[in-house]
């Protein structure tokens, strides 16, 4: 039997990796989207563990809501990136710096 703290540490590590992936990444927006996806998966992991530990179904139900919403969110994100690509002919993170002041 693996203690619950191990699971929680794993999900926190995944969360931190995804945050680092967003803030350290200087090249591509697609990598940012991948990191966001990882962030939501780590949160799902958290919910499943807590739901299992409390023997309560709510946590697992919430996971389905999150999965659905995150899928919609990445669809919109990809659409916005397509629009940006049309206007700019590239999706480099460094180039997104026209708005300043």
């Amino acid at each position: 039997m693996i203690p619950m703290s191990h699971y929680l540490i794993l999900s926190s590590i995944l969360f931190s990796i995804s945050l680092a992936g967003i803030f350290l990444n200087r090249k591509n927006i697609i990598i940012m989207l991948m990191s966001l996806e990882l962030m939501f998966l780590s949160i799902n992991f958290n919910f499943i563990i807590f739901g299992n530990y409390l023997s309560d179904l709510t946590g697992q139900i919430f996971v389905f809501f999150i999965l659905a919403v995150v899928a919609a969110e990445s669809a919109i994100g990809l659409a916005i990136i397509v629009v940006l690509f049309r206007n700019k002919q590239g999706i480099n993170v460094q180039d997104i710096a026209r708005l300043k002041g």
Partner: peptide, 8 residues
């Protein structure tokens, strides 16, 4: 271009 940048 500004709009799409802001949206991203």
């Amino acid at each position: 271009l500004f709009s799409s940048e802001a949206a991203v």
